[in-house]
Amino acid sequence: MNGMTKIVKTIAGISFPFIVIYGLYVIAHGHLTPGGGFQGGAVVASGLALILVAYGSKWAATKIKEHDLSLLESVGAIGFITVAFFGILFGGVFFSNFIVGTDLLFGGIPLAGAADINTGGTLPLMNFAVGLKVIAGLFGIVFIMALAISKKEESA
C-alpha cells in the first residue's frame, strides 16, 4: 500500500500529535474520568493507524518491525501481571491494591468532589501497562493487515 497525497500526509502529520496526546491523557486519567488503558490505547493506536494509512505500509515497514510491536505488547502484559503479583507480595492477595494509603506515587485516598491524580493506587500503573499493550496490539493488528494486503497487491 503506497502513501496518499501530500494534503493527506500533511494533515495527518499535524493532527497526529494531538491524537496521541489526547490518548495519553485518557490513559493517564483512567482512574478519574471515563476511559482508561484500553480506550486511551485505542485512541493512540488509531492515531498511528492514521499515519500508516497516510504514508503507506511500505514506508511504515521501514520505520518499525512487527516483532518490536509484539515485544512491546508482551512488556505491557508482563507489566500488568507483575503489578498484580506485587499484590501478593505487599498486600497479601493477588491484585491487591497495596499502594493506596501509602506515601508512594498514586498513594492518595480519593475525596468526593475533587479529582486528584495522585490517587488510585495500582490502578494507574495497570492502566499504563494496558495502554502500552493496547497501543502495540491494536496498531500491530492494523499494521500486519496492511502488510498482508500490500503483499496481495504485489502478487496480483
Partner: peptide
C-alpha cells in the same frame, strides 16, 4: 495463593514466552 497462581502463572508464562523464544 494457589487459586490465583493457577491462572496467573500460565498467563505470565504466555507473555514471557515470546521474549524467551528470542
Amino acid at each position: 495463593h494457589a487459586p490465583a497462581l493457577l491462572v496467573a502463572i500460565p498467563l505470565l508464562g504466555a507473555f514471557l514466552t515470546p521474549l524467551i523464544g528470542r
